[in-house]
Lab assay of single mutants.
Amino acid sequence: MTFKLIINGKTLKGETTTEAVDAATAEKVFKQYANDNGLDGEWTYDDATKTFTITE
């Protein structure tokens, strides 16, 4: 399955995708991506669209 991450950061904005077997796996990938890029914010997830959002 394809999951999307929408980034609404103070300095970084955009989106990225990952292929994962489930939402929990995708969340780990996206949280590592956010950590690697210095993002810290509030996370939301929409199961209907398989989309995570981080807002700083």
Rank of each mutant, 00 (worst) to 15 (best):
Ile6His: 05
Phe52Leu: 01
Lys31Val: 07
Thr55Lys: 05
Asp22Val: 03
Thr25Gln: 08
Glu27His: 11
Thr18Pro: 01
Ala20Gln: 13
Thr16Ala: 13
Thr2Asn: 10
Asn37Val: 13
Thr44Arg: 13
Ala26Cys: 02
Thr2Trp: 14
Glu19Asn: 10
Asp47Ala: 10
Leu39Pro: 02
Ala34Ile: 06
Ala26Met: 01
Phe30Cys: 01
Phe3Gln: 01
Thr53Gly: 03
Asn37Ile: 15
Ala34Glu: 02
Thr16Ile: 15
Lys50Trp: 05
Glu15Gly: 08
Val21Tyr: 14
Lys28Pro: 03
Leu5Ile: 03
Asp40Gly: 08
Asp36Arg: 09
Ala48Phe: 12
Gly9Ser: 12
Thr18Ile: 15
Gln32Trp: 05
Asn37Gly: 04
Tyr33Arg: 02
Thr17Gln: 12
Thr49Leu: 09
Asn37Gln: 13
Glu56Gly: 06
Glu56Ile: 14
Thr25Ile: 08
Ala34Thr: 07
Asp36Met: 10
Leu5Cys: 05
Thr49Cys: 04
Phe52Val: 01
Trp43Gln: 01
Lys50Asp: 03
Ala48Tyr: 11
Lys31Ile: 07
Asp22Thr: 05
Thr11Val: 10
Glu27Lys: 09
Ile7Leu: 08
Ala48Trp: 09
Gln32Ile: 10
Tyr33Lys: 03
Thr17Ile: 10
Asp22Ala: 03
Lys28Met: 14
Ala20Lys: 03
Ala24Asp: 10
Asp22Leu: 04
Gly9Phe: 15
Ala34Met: 06
Ile6Arg: 06
Asn35Asp: 11
Phe52Pro: 00
Lys31Glu: 04
Lys4Tyr: 12
Gly41Gln: 02
Glu15Cys: 11
Thr16Trp: 15
Asn37His: 15
Glu42Asn: 10
Asp22Ser: 06
Asp36Trp: 07
Ala34His: 01
Gly14Asp: 08
Val21Lys: 09
Val29Glu: 07
Ile6Glu: 04
Glu15Gln: 13
Lys4Gly: 04
Asp46Tyr: 04
Asp40Arg: 15
Ala20Cys: 07
Lys31Thr: 05
Thr51Ile: 07
Thr51His: 03
Met1Asn: 12
Leu39Asn: 03
Leu5Thr: 01
Gly38Ser: 09
Asp40Gln: 15
Thr53Val: 09
Glu27Tyr: 15
Val29Met: 09
Thr17Gly: 04
Leu12Gln: 14
Asp22Gln: 03
Leu12Val: 13
Thr51Gln: 04
Thr16Leu: 14
Leu5Met: 05
Ile54Lys: 01
Gly14Pro: 06
Asp46Leu: 04
Glu56His: 07
Thr11Trp: 13
Trp43Asn: 00
Glu42Lys: 13
Leu12His: 13
Met1Ala: 10
Ala48Ser: 12
Gly9Asp: 04
Phe3Asn: 01
Val29Asn: 06
Thr25Leu: 07
Leu5Gln: 00
Ala23Glu: 07
Ala20Thr: 05
Leu5Asn: 00
Asp46Met: 04
Ile54Phe: 06
Tyr33Thr: 03
Lys10His: 11
Ile7Met: 07
Lys10Ala: 09
Thr2Gly: 05
Ala24Ile: 10
Gly41Leu: 02
Ala26Asn: 00
Asp47Tyr: 06
Ile7Lys: 02
Trp43His: 01
Tyr45Arg: 02
Thr25Arg: 06
Asn37Thr: 06
Glu19Cys: 11
Leu12Ser: 11
Thr2His: 10
Ala48Asp: 13
Thr51Ala: 05
Thr17Phe: 15
Asn37Glu: 07
Ile54Leu: 14
Gly14Thr: 11
Phe30Asn: 00
Thr25Pro: 02
Thr16Pro: 03
Ala24Gln: 12
Ala48Asn: 14
Ile6Cys: 05
Ala24Tyr: 11
Thr44Ser: 12
Thr16Arg: 15
Asp47Leu: 07
Gly9Asn: 06
Glu42Ala: 09
Asp36Leu: 11
Thr44Tyr: 10
Val29Pro: 01
Ile6Asn: 05
Ala34Gly: 04
Glu27Trp: 14
Asn37Arg: 15
Lys31His: 08
Glu15Tyr: 14
Thr51Ser: 05
Asp40Glu: 15
Glu19Pro: 05
Leu5Glu: 01
